[in-house]
Nucleic acid binder design. Structure first.
Lengths: 196, 196
DNA sequence: CTCATTGGCTAATGCTAGTAGCTTTTGAGG
DNA sequence: CCTCAAAAGCTACTAGCATTAGCCAATGAG
């Protein structure tokens, strides 16, 4: 019997690709094994089980998402950075719905969990982007949470087919980001006016 | 063997309660049967299977959510209605995370699916609330989608333990709703200024 | 060339959803 | 009060998926 040349990373990558195809909730060890041309028990030589596989996919997805957002924001500031970052995130979720679902389902297992730095990188990119708006320090956390809520909410509703009405989802997204941008600028402007 | 006096509605209600306790993803037929003091196969006399049970819980949750939002908005307008409706939704998801997850996982099965009118009632309440801001007609759909995104996103992130930093989640929510309210009012004001 | 390690396999276990078919309760109508 | 058909429980069983045990061949360092 010839070897398939698998490794934890390649199994994880194949699992992520499969999750994107069939949906994270339909991902099974048997299906993944079949896709890799191997029998189910062989997978256990590379990942500890389904929970481990899901967690590895989550780390992969979060890392990829962090990269995508960082690259999009790179060299931009203010509105440009917000628009670019937001679109990068939406694109990522649309292209990789299964991985993103894995990322949402994952829970941090301990202090050494590689998911922790991956999540921190995503948050750091958003924080860097928001810095361009020069918000009051005590408002940054609120703005950050709002941003995460709106982007995560839009992405998951879109992925779940939640936007049924026949109106451009693209247009709604742009409108929404403009709305947030205007509001953030107004928040800063108000603060400056009060400081005078 | 005495009868347990079950019915589709009571099985659904018990399933919803159990989902809230242990999480929607951990809900199983066996666990629900045990909770109801009955053997697993007996449940199939009342619901067609796990998929049917999940769908019934989704309909229940969506209906309850629609009621909660309608009651909160009742008799209020503008900012008051937004604040009340948003808080009602957040409270509902915090109190019933399992049901809400069932609602999110559900897909409309056909034109006679009772999930359809339930979802429509939720959307109708949000539409009624937004009417108080007197937005331009072509902006209403965008505002609606933004509102759904932000509330759904915040609720799911909160339910999933996504807000780790030691800052008041309550305060963030209030800040966020105020931000949206300000933006909606500014949108209307801008339109009025332009109309002059 | 040797041989320990690694990665594949088959076989078997256990858990969960779901089905078949039997029995008892229930309640409507004689 | 009796009859009896429908409904609601039960036990026993099947099927699918995750996982484990244990075997054997491929690999590569010495």
């Amino acid at each position: 019997m010839p070897r398939a040349g698998l490794a934890p990373a390649s199994v994880t990558a194949a699992g992520a690709a499969l999750a994107d195809e069939v949906g994270f909730d339909r991902l099974s060890m048997g299906l993944l094994a079949e896709r890799l041309g191997v029998r189910t028990p062989s997978l256990y030589k590379h990942v500890a089980g389904q929970a481990d596989l899901a967690h590895r996919i989550a780390v992969l997805a979060t890392t990829e998402l962090a990269d995508a957002i960082r690259d999009a924001i790179q060299g931009r500031a203010g509105s440009d950075a917000l628009v670019a970052g937001a679109h990068a995130m939406r694109s990522y979720v649309r292209d990789h719905p299964g991985r993103y679902a894995a990322g949402n389902a994952a829970r941090v297992s301990g202090p050494d969990d590689p998911l922790v730095p991956a999540v921190e990188r995503v948050l750091a990119s958003w924080a860097a982007m928001l810095r361009g708006y020069q918000l009051a320090p005590d408002q940054e956390i609120h703005a950050m949470r709002m941003l995460r809520s709106i982007l995560h909410g839009f992405a998951t509703l879109e992925a779940g087919g939640g936007f049924q009405i026949d109106a451009s989802v693209e247009e709604s997204f742009t409108w929404m980001i403009t709305f947030i941008d205007d509001g953030l600028q107004a928040t800063t402007a108000t603060r400056r006016a009060l400081a005078r």
